[in-house]
């Protein structure tokens, strides 16, 4: 329970606007400079400020992975990262996966293996997988499960996702040499 009295300074804070901080980062290859409230999460920065709605909010507590983005090469849950922590960072979201008007091999395999149903968890799975294949182009089944177990999906039962990741890894090794 929150003690309401303790929050009585809040309006003053909002009014004074003193707490705003400036943030510079690179998102999907584009440099972004913004002034934000320090309480803003990275997820809400991406969605509310940059209007990149591909990254989803589902649990808000890092338990489901729907908000996964790649930050400085690592897959992270953006719902429990402050946007200001991304100052100076390089961020990749689902919107940055397709290049030159073509969707990536990974995205193609998610489609052809039907590794998605409602699609709400899909951006998170794609980002976790992208980070995995970037550090390990030939992951074992166990390594795939380890990397993706933090992403929850209620629709697919995961088997189609596992297959899509394996096929994408194989194709990337062949086609992206």
């Amino acid at each position: 329970m929150v003690d309401h009295k303790e929050c009585s300074l809040l309006d003053e804070h909002i009014a004074s606007n003193q707490r705003k901080v400036s943030l510079t980062c690179v998102v999907n290859g584009v440099e972004i400079c913004d002034t934000i409230d320090p309480t803003m999460t990275l997820l809400h920065f991406l969605r509310d400020r940059l209007k990149l709605f591909g990254t989803k909010e589902s649990c808000g507590e890092g338990e489901c992975g729907a908000c996964t983005v790649i930050m400085n090469g690592k897959a992270v849950t953006s719902c429990i990262i402050l946007a200001i922590e991304a100052d100076g960072a390089e961020i990749l979201t689902v919107e940055g996966l397709a290049k030159d008007g073509r969707i990536s091999i990974l995205q193609e395999e998610f489609i052809s293996e039907d590794a998605l149903q409602c699609g709400f968890c899909t951006p998170g799975f794609l980002m976790s997988t992208r980070a995995l294949l970037d550090r390990n182009p030939d992951p074992s089944e166990e390594e795939i499960k380890e990397a993706l177990a933090g992403n929850l999906c209620r629709c697919t039962g995961y088997l189609p996702i596992l297959k899509a990741v394996k096929k994408a890894a194989e194709r990337e090794r062949k086609e992206l040499k």
């Binding site: 890092g62 992975g65 996964t68 690592k74 897959a75 992270v76 849950t77 429990i80 990262i81 976790s128 380890e146 990397a147 993706l148 177990a149 933090g150 992403n151």
Partner: peptide, 9 residues
């Protein structure tokens, strides 16, 4: 500990 994603942070 937790998930791979969380262990990155």
């Amino acid at each position: 500990l937790a998930s791979f994603l969380l262990r990155n942070r």
